[in-house]
Simulated assay, not measured.
Amino acid sequence: MIELHRHDDILEIRLARPPVNALDPELLAALRTAVRAAPGEGARGVVVAGGPNVFSGGMDVPHLMKLDRAALTAAWWGFFQTARAIAESPVPVVAAIGGHSPAGGCVLALCCDYRVMARGPFRIGLNEVQVGLVAPDAIQHLMRRLIGPYRAERLLVAGALVDAEQAQALGLVDELTDAEHVTVRARAWLEELLKLPAEPMLATRRLARADLVAALAGFSESELGGFVDGWYRPDCQAALKALVARLGK
């Protein structure tokens, strides 16, 4: 599900579930475990990378559609806990976005400290509305803190995906580079950060990211229950089934 590559003080965690790194419980658990274990294994920084053309296609909807409510709830809880693990990492985490990154893929990237995206016809965003879902406030907060409340509102309400150039202009991603250099640039940014005095850098980082950590930590199981209720609304089910049909083609 994942590949681990060590580059001195930096651990690269590469999602490895072809064809689009769809997020199922097994992949999420592997990613969550690797992120949490990295500092204890000596990593001073982490790069989370996807595959060529697609960072992650988001949650594995065909898989989720087969689950009963209890298993569905557990799968979504695992997703939110993985996002929280990235946000709470005591060492910096960079997203190396080599391609498209909709929905859940975007959420994971937004939890990182920095985002390097491939230049080209790739899109990123929170398109939950397009499939009948409401992104919880904790997730909306991730976008608001990067691009501001009004711009986030416009994208969230429309469920819009934006291309790489627009994403950088909005501040949704920090840097664009050629696809083959995405992970190299992600490591380079970390290497420069890690040259700073470690204790003050990490302490400042904790203070600066406290709102992000608090937003995800405050997401409760009762809120998750409301989110899952929405999954079973007729309009959402119709949109999800249409999505699965498109994916099947």
Rank of each mutant, 00 (worst) to 15 (best):
V20N: 07
S56V: 14
P18E: 02
R206Y: 01
S220K: 08
T183D: 00
P18R: 12
R32A: 03
A179M: 15
L31T: 09
V157I: 08
L202F: 12
T183H: 00
P62N: 10
A135T: 05
A164F: 08
A138V: 08
L170H: 06
G120F: 11
L146N: 02
G45H: 05
A16C: 05
M201T: 11
E192N: 12
L110R: 05
W76V: 02
G78N: 01
E165I: 12
V173I: 15
A118N: 07
D229G: 04
M1L: 03
N53H: 12
V228P: 07
E180D: 11
R246G: 04
A238P: 06
K66S: 03
L161M: 15
D60C: 08
G105E: 01
G78L: 08
W77F: 00
E199P: 03
G98V: 05
L108H: 01
P25G: 00
W77I: 07
P19A: 10
V107G: 02
D60I: 07
F227E: 02
G226Y: 06
L27Y: 05
S222E: 14
A217K: 15
G50H: 10
G218Y: 12
L196Q: 03
L4N: 05
E223F: 09
A203Q: 11
A160N: 06
S101R: 07
V134W: 00
D163S: 03
P136C: 10
R185V: 13
D174P: 02
W76Q: 00
G125A: 03
L4S: 06
G125N: 05
A49M: 09
V35L: 02
Q166N: 13
P52G: 10
R185F: 04
V134S: 02
F122V: 06
E192M: 14
E223G: 04
P25Q: 09
L28M: 15
G125Y: 03
R32P: 03
P149K: 15
V94Y: 05
Y232P: 03
F227S: 02
L27C: 10
F219E: 00
D211A: 15
A217L: 13
D9W: 01
G99I: 11
L194H: 06
G148D: 07
M143Y: 06
D113W: 00
L155C: 05
L247D: 04
A71P: 09
R151V: 02
L161A: 10
A214S: 10
D174I: 02
L202Q: 10
K241L: 04
L15F: 03
G42Y: 10
E191R: 15
A29L: 10
A217E: 14
P234N: 06
